[in-house]
């Protein structure tokens, strides 16, 4: 329950930032994909049915503010969670570096995957000039991810939630 409330609140804040900041400042590329970072944190550190449902809900909430296809971001964020879950399950240690790599891959997946699901594979060839922007956004998200992971760890300690990954 606490996990749901915490990540629900953080999702709202993240969406508020992602929808407001690019509007007021010409810094779209510099705004990290906070939803993906939250989903990766969930996948690395919280294993279970509720966390994956939370990831789905986060993606669904993103659909409310992004694009026209309902369910697109819900599916992508769920997939990103599953990938992070699998990595966390296979590795002995999940450090901030691992988290950053997962975030990088997750952002690329969400942007390119979203492009393909929206417009088809043919759009990939037309979107060539956008790939540097996708990569930049993924890199910035990956760089900022450890800071957010640390912030989340601090909040989890305060709220009594488990900080480390749960091993099954």
């Amino acid at each position: 329950m606490r996990l749901s409330i915490l990540f629900g609140f953080l999702t709202l804040v993240s969406l508020a930032i992602e929808t407001a900041v690019p509007y007021w400042f010409p810094l779209r590329m510099l705004v990290p994909n906070l939803i993906v970072i939250l989903a990766v944190d969930l996948g690395l550190r919280h294993h279970g049915a509720i966390p994956i449902a939370l990831a789905f809900a986060m993606g669904y909430a993103t659909d409310a503010f992004a694009g026209t296809i309902l369910g697109l971001n819900a599916m992508l964020i769920t997939v990103i969670y599953l990938l992070a879950y699998e990595v966390s399950s296979r590795l002995m240690v999940t450090t901030a570096l691992v988290g950053s790599i997962m975030v990088f891959a997750g952002v690329l997946l969400s942007t390119i995957g979203g492009l393909v699901l929206n417009s088809g594979f043919a759009a990939l060839s037309d979107a060539g000039p956008l790939f540097p922007h996708f990569a930049a956004e993924a890199a910035i998200s990956a760089i900022i991810a450890p800071v957010i992971f640390a912030f989340l760890s601090g909040i989890k300690r305060i709220t009594g939630l488990p900080v480390g990954p749960a091993r099954e």
């Binding site: 969406l15 994956i52 449902a53 789905f56 993606g59 669904y60 909430a61 659909d63 409310a64 503010f65 026209t68 296809i69 309902l70 369910g71 697109l72 819900a74 599916m75 769920t78 997939v79 969670y81 599953l82 879950y85 699901l117």
Partner: peptide, 29 residues
């Protein structure tokens, strides 16, 4: 995860619009 992905695909392919009842949570957001 599989069930949610399938559900997502259903939402994407069933032509669900933001005005439909199933999109009420999104409007609520």
């Amino acid at each position: 995860g599989g069930a949610l992905i399938v559900f997502s695909l259903y939402l994407m392919t069933a032509g669900v619009r933001h005005g439909d009842r199933i999109a009420a949570p999104a409007r609520g957001m």
